[in-house]
Write a protein that binds this DNA or RNA. Structure first.
Length: 391
RNA sequence: GGAGGUGUGGCCGAGCGGUCAAUGGCAGCAGACUGUAAAUCUGCCGGGCAACGCCCUACGGAGGUUCGAAUCCUCCCGCCUCCA
């Protein structure tokens, strides 16, 4: 059950695991990287442009972040990976001396759907910045990431939304496999780990095929892509039921890309996932939605203008220790810049604290017993959670 | 005193005989957001109802022309500009 991955660069150790007999595959782990240890299950805040929007590195540390994600595609376009390399690499560039993982740019293959052409060799994008034509291939994506210098790079993949027709999902999945092999062949930086990505949509056969294929390659970790889009929580859980058992004896970390909400994170941890990332907590914060135990508060609602209480009692974040709901509601209305920082500090603190609670339960061996409390704290599982007003 | 202009829904501002309860924007009220082209996007936004349709009140005020007026005419009131 416990095991240690063979990676010399980013070794992963499973420290404890829930009893899989009860369909609970949650596990406690530790990922070691050149810039520090990442305790898992763990959430990685997204810092696309070498910054988690609205926060500085001190805010991130205070919120409890141990690793952040940055984006190959965006930094490739601006300011350019070669420039960042000349300036001493990504860690130094963004003032973050802790672990960094870069996404490969694969996600932009779908998120910039109107601006790209995909062929077997790679993908051609229309730059969202200046409209110029840019190209990413597995080899280029790896070269860019080696220049950027994150602790962990990710193979270039071709994501697909599960709702797409099966032939399309199958094509993208098979291409992802070929690109995975090319990414591995191109990667040579010895102080950098490389994760591969499983695709396959929600089709059990394709997911299983993709899992076996990617797991068969010497990656340092296994990413699961295409499961944070338009599928339902049930479809996602079903997909994990296919994927994770096939990785049961695999000691490498499992990273579900793109989750998410506390409820989704918890269910995916139960499904056997170690790592997550998502823009959701940060974006929701900027849009006025604050996460609290049991639900979420829309601070743009009129009711909060006269609410002198903190957003969340007992929360150690910059917002809650110093300011009221009324103040944040005012800042949001006035579109004051401080609103975005305070709200983001809170949601990331909440999310990272939630992961810490999960780890604590796993460490104490009380995870199954703690589930009800954790689920209550996370709120509803559905995408449409009900906002609650803690007394 | 003379000449000209202008007054529209909480605010700004279109409309200049019917298809106008009245384009837009702002403010306001809600909702969405999951490997970030997002400090973004969407809906509602005079009142009432047995409400996918009907009624009432509405475009400074009062009259009038017309089948029909926010739109044309007359007078009045307010504001603005120029000349004295």
């Amino acid at each position: 059950m416990a095991g240690r991955s063979g990676s010399a660069v980013v070794p992963f150790t499973v420290l404890a695991a829930a009893d899989p007999a009860h369909g609970n595959r949650a596990r406690l782990g530790r990922l070691e990287t050149p810039h520090g240890v990442v305790d898992t299950p763990q959430f990685m805040p997204v810092g696309t442009n070498a910054t988690v929007k609205a926060l500085d590195p001190g805010d991130l540390e205070h919120a409890g972040a141990s690793i952040v994600l940055a984006n190959t595609y965006h930094l490739f376009l601006r300011p350019g990976h070669e420039r960042i390399e000349r300036l001493g690499g990504l860690h130094r560039f963004m003032g973050w001396d802790h672990p960094i993982l870069t996404d490969s740019g694969g996600f932009q293959v779908v998120s910039l759907a109107d601006a790209r052409v995909i062929d077997e060799d790679g993908a051609t994008f229309r730059s969202h910045i200046d409209g110029s034509e840019r190209r990413l291939t597995p080899e280029i994506a790896i070269a860019v990431q080696e220049a950027l210098g994150p602790d962990i790079a990710v193979a270039f993949d071709h994501p697909v939304y599960p709702s797409r027709p099966r032939p399309e999902v199958e094509d993208a999945t098979e291409r992802t496999h070929r690109w995975a092999e090319r990414s591995l062949a191109a990667h040579s930086r010895p102080d950098q780990g490389l994760f591969g990505i499983i695709q396959g949509g929600v089709d059990p056969e394709l997911r299983a095929r993709s899992t076996r294929f990617i797991a068969g390659l010497p990656f340092d970790g296994i990413c699961i892509g295409g499961l944070a889009g338009d599928e339902t929580p049930v479809q996602r859980a079903d997909a994990l039921d296919v994927i994770v058992p096939l990785l049961a004896d695999d000691p490498r970390p499992r990273y579900l890309m793109g989750l998410g909400s506390p409820a989704d994170l918890l269910e995916a941890v139960i499904g056997g996932i170690d790592l997550f990332d998502s823009v959701l907590p940060a974006r929701n914060a900027r849009n006025g939605q604050l996460w609290v135990p049991g639900g979420r508060l829309n601070l743009r609602n009129a009711a909060f203008l006269d609410d002198g209480r903190p957003v969340q009692e007992d929360c150690p974040c910059l917002l809650c220790t110093r300011f009221s709901r009324a103040y944040l509601a005012h800042l949001l209305r006035a579109r004051e810049l401080l609103a975005y920082r305070l709200a983001t500090c809170h949601n990331l603190t909440f999310t990272l604290d939630f992961m810490a609670r999960i780890r604590a339960a796993l460490r104490a061996g009380t995870f199954p017993e703690s589930l009800a409390a954790l689920r209550a704290r996370a709120g509803r599982i559905s995408r449409r959670e009900v906002a609650v007003e803690p007394a």
